[in-house]
């Protein structure tokens, strides 16, 4: 498939995530939109990892593990996202316990 299509798909998913973060007030949904943006970046990394193998003319690019780095980056992004989710959900639970709501506008109270 042309790499352009993957780029546009990842951009669409990322923009949907941005729109969700900007328009929703539920902290959990904002968090889910952040996960969506991370996945858009992952998809783009995987698509680009299969890109440079297409150059059959250059034998230096035909190493078997070429592009494995990008897929390992995706693996590490998933690791970091899992750690982020545990801490973030703990923060949301604590926020709900204090304010009895997950509305991010209540976090204005942090000012005082």
């Amino acid at each position: 498939m042309p790499i352009n299509l993957y780029i546009f798909l990842a951009l669409a998913l990322f923009s949907i995530g941005v729109i969700g973060v900007l328009t929703r007030r539920n902290a959990i949904i904002i968090f889910m939109c952040i996960e969506l943006m991370l996945n858009a970046a992952n998809l783009l990394l995987v698509a680009f990892s299969k890109l440079h193998l297409a150059d059959k003319a250059n034998p230096a690019l035909n190493v078997a593990t070429n592009g494995a780095d990008a897929q390992l980056f995706v693996f590490f992004i998933m690791v970091v996202a899992a750690a982020e989710v545990t801490v973030g959900l703990a923060i949301i639970v604590m926020m709900y316990r204090n304010t009895h709501s997950v509305d991010v506008n209540f976090l204005n109270r942090l000012k005082n």
Partner: peptide, 30 residues
């Protein structure tokens, strides 16, 4: 704002040099 972000990124990348590049599907074992 999100739509403008999408529009700007797509417009910037539409004429990029990637049009002839293809991502390999269904092959490669990395």
């Amino acid at each position: 704002a999100g739509g403008c972000l999408l529009l700007v990124l797509v417009a910037a990348l539409r004429d990029a040099d990637t049009r002839t590049s293809t991502a390999l599907v269904k092959e490669g074992d990395i």
